[in-house]
Design a protein around this nucleic acid. Structure first.
Length: 187
DNA sequence: GTTCCGATGTACT
DNA sequence: GTACATCGGAACG
């Protein structure tokens, strides 16, 4: 995977990331749920233009944008389209495949299904925090490999937003057991 | 199984 | 002050 992959509209990149392998220091799994955000979107951190927090969103594609949410959790995004500055994809859930023991330890949870089912849980399991904000996802400690198996991807409105609630920019692998929520069913 | 609610930091009005 | 791209535990069925 390279810069060109991310230098496209976020709502195009987001479904393409479903099925990709995502690891931090060798720990992680297959991406099964993502959401797209861009600067024309009132739900996006970039909506009101550049700021200290959202600076990575206005930088080059393929960099991490990591921020704290609700004072307790981290969320991990990858910056997209440089022509539509201020766009990114939030990675919301993984199907754990590597480093299960370590993830379980970090999360304090036994069930594999719970390890990376949500943006905050995923960051905890992979030990992602603000130290990785702005880092390239093509270099250590990240591993990001394009999907090898193509499965059906569905979409729905995004979770946890109060604006842009109807924009169907949440993408997930159809039938996956590892989503942050039970499949709402759309197409 | 479900629903409800508080925690807790920070960006922004 | 208010809102927030969330989560886990308590209470309940």
């Amino acid at each position: 995977m390279d810069t060109a992959f991310f230098d496209r509209p976020a709502e195009t990149v987001a479904p393409d990331l479903i099925g990709a392998l995502f690891l931090v220091n060798g720990v992680g799994g297959r991406i099964v749920e993502t959401e797209a955000y861009d600067a024309e979107d009132p739900a996006s951190h970039s909506f009101r233009g550049p700021s200290v927090r959202n600076a990575p969103m206005f930088g080059p594609p393929g960099r991490a944008y990591v921020y704290r949410v609700y004072g307790r959790h981290w969320c991990f995004n990858v910056v997209c389209d440089v022509r539509r500055r201020g766009s990114a994809v939030l990675v919301r859930a993984l199907e754990p495949t590597a480093g299960l023991g370590l993830m379980s330890e970090r999360r304090g949870v036994g069930e594999v299904r719970q390890l990376c089912a949500g943006p905050g849980r995923l960051c905890r399991a992979l030990a992602i925090d603000d130290r990785l904000n702005g880092a390239s996802v093509f270099a250590s400690p990240f591993t990001l490999l394009d999907k090898t198996i193509v499965r059906r991807v569905s979409h729905s409105p995004r979770i946890g937003v109060s604006k842009g609630v109807e924009t169907p920019w949440r993408f997930f692998e159809d039938g996956s057991r590892y989503l942050s929520r039970r499949e709402p069913a759309t197409a």
